[in-house]
Design a binder for these strands. Structure first.
Length: 258
DNA sequence: ATGGCTGAGCTACTCAGA
């Protein structure tokens, strides 16, 4: 089973890139973040034509997440946490892998910049609630996959120049500790688990030639419950979509389980 | 380099992103 996570920075502006990518990679499930559109303007038909169901938690202009899947997904929910600002940042569902029932959690964590503002407080509060609800969920189901745009640089090697981000909402110790707290509930950051020292990124700014200079950061992650490790086959950051015309500033991360 | 690019909403220019 191939599950992919991608912050597309507008599903409508990116629809041709996304459809071409699906044809190349043939995912079973595609988790999208930053769709930047409401449910009623989501391009359901484009995905339906190539054989995918769409489950959408949209929002006008900003944020928004969706699950695109070849098979129907059970128990879709948009209420994993109560969002203080009513922003559309989480959609969950349940899938089966062999005999296991897995809860799939697709997230778009608040950016939180600038620090020392209500935006940063919102990010901290959001992560706190998220971690609490993961703890609760683990009591019902110990098979979880959390994927998406975390807006967290886990370690120094996950960004081209850590000094520039150590007091940023993506790199602050206080935020990285939240990530560590989440992992300590029984997850592996599966990319880092399989690539102990590798420097690969999932995001590059649009400006200042960041892509060409490889001034990027690894902020999109797949966290899987440790008891799902026996199903692990591969994890890959696919840089190809970032090199295409009119790219998203993020590139997809691809997980294969069997 | 706390914004040099991009997208949405809208149709001039702001907000947001990381």
């Amino acid at each position: 089973m191939k599950i992919i996570s991608w912050n597309v920075n507008s599903v409508r502006a990116r629809i041709n890139n996304i459809l071409n990518y699906i044809k190349d990679e043939n995912p079973d499930i595609l988790l999208l973040q930053e769709i930047k559109t409401q449910d009623q303007t989501f391009p359901y038909d484009s995905f339906k034509e190539i054989g995918y169901f769409s489950y959408v938690f949209g929002q006008k202009s900003y944020n928004g997440v969706a699950i695109i899947s070849k098979n129907k997904i059970n128990k879709i929910s948009k209420e994993f946490i109560k969002d203080n600002l009513n922003q559309s940042r989480i959609i969950t569902g349940e899938i089966f892998l062999q005999n296991k029932n897995i809860t799939l959690i697709n997230i778009y964590v608040p950016n939180g910049n600038p620090v020392n503002t209500e935006k940063y407080d919102y990010k901290k509060e959001w992560l706190k609630k998220f971690i609490n609800n993961i703890k609760k969920k683990l009591k019902q189901n110990s098979n979880l996959i959390i994927a998406g745009d975390f807006n967290i640089i886990p370690e120094e090697l996950d960004v081209f120049d850590f000094k520039r981000y150590e007091d940023d909402a993506l790199g602050r110790l206080e935020i990285r500790k939240k990530y560590r707290e989440l992992l300590n509930l029984g997850f592996e950051d599966i990319y880092r688990f399989k690539n102990k020292k590798k420097c690969e990124y999932t995001f590059w700014d649009y400006f200042a030639g960041s892509w060409q200079k490889n001034y990027g950061m690894r902020i999109d992650h797949f966290l899987i419950s440790k008891n799902l490790l026996e199903h692990f086959f591969s994890i890959k950051i696919n840089k190809k979509p970032r090199s295409k015309p009119k790219p998203s500033d993020h590139t997809p991360i691809e997980l294969v389980l069997n």
